[in-house]
Design a protein around this nucleic acid. Sequence first.
DNA 1: GGAATGTTGCAACTGATTCTCAATACAAGG
DNA 2: CCTTGTATTGAGAATCAGTTGCAACATTCC
Lengths: 152, 152
Amino acid sequence: MQDYEKIFKAFLAGKGLKLTMPRRYILEEVFRLHEHFNAEDLYAKVKLVTRDVSLATVYRTLPLLMEAGLVQHALRSSGRDRFEHIYGHPKHVHWLCRNCGAIQETDLQALMPVIKKQADAIRFKTDDIELSIRGICWKCALLENENHIEKE
Amino acid sequence: MQDYEKIFKAFLAGKGLKLTMPRRYILEEVFRLHEHFNAEDLYAKVKLVTRDVSLATVYRTLPLLMEAGLVQHALRSSGRDRFEHIYGHPKHVHWLCRNCGAIQETDLQALMPVIKKQADAIRFKTDDIELSIRGICWKCALLENENHIEKE
DNA sequence: GGAATGTTGCAACTGATTCTCAATACAAGG
DNA sequence: CCTTGTATTGAGAATCAGTTGCAACATTCC
Ligand SMILES: [Mn+2]
Ligand SMILES: [Mn+2]
Ligand SMILES: [Zn+2]
Ligand SMILES: [Zn+2]
């Protein structure tokens, strides 16, 4: 049994809940996926393995996984919430290109000392940190320049 | 005429658009408000001044104000987007208490050097930075402790 | 067995946001 | 003035991600 299964099982047990098959399928898929996904992406992936899971259960399980510290809300784009498994991964910054939609990641650790200092200053008990930056990725910036040159 | 009016007017002109009365009412209210607001909050406030504005126009004007650099998306909570006027304000971090919903702000400038360095490293052209941290504010943390004591 | 409690799929619902459309404003040119 | 083109608007309809009610099941505990 994987670590994340133990963690989820223990978390659920603590709330009088059980690691059922649908929940297990969803959990497995969450850790098989190494990209950012929204609820429907996840549902589609799980569907490839079994049909004993409904979209409603995906929506119901995601908050549990988040509360258990296994999944986090990564960012929101195009009107949808996107998630990622976080267990075993360092926290990171999301850079979203508003032209092509590509997402890049950088380290958040470098920012933690300042953030922690500020948290202490206002006596805030931090659960989640979400830093998303939107703009233009270098590829799209390149293309824009090329187009400008063509126009001239 | 306020600075922000000039800016918005110039921005609109650059796109072949005009600063109409509904847009002006909305703009005025945006800068009269000194809290975070969602579209409906803003609509309600504008309604107190005039009835010549519709909710649809509020929704249509917000993206223009954002593009003009006068308003920014502050954070999302309870399924709603919340905004704030940003012209003349330093960028800041939002600390959202997931118990009472209170929002505190701290300086983002302290984090900018690292963020800029990372942006350079991936050659990203930054437009917006949104750093939201959720957890428990000190007031709610206090109350929680009191309750624990009572229970014992 | 029977009660109590948690789980699920399904379909209906919700509600913030977006869109459609007909009416209106307004500028430019004749 | 009149005509034409373009931008604008309010009202209401539509969208659609996410939530919820509910009846059928599953499990555990007497
Ligand atoms: Mn990520
Ligand atoms: Mn703010
Ligand atoms: Zn891009
Ligand atoms: Zn609080």
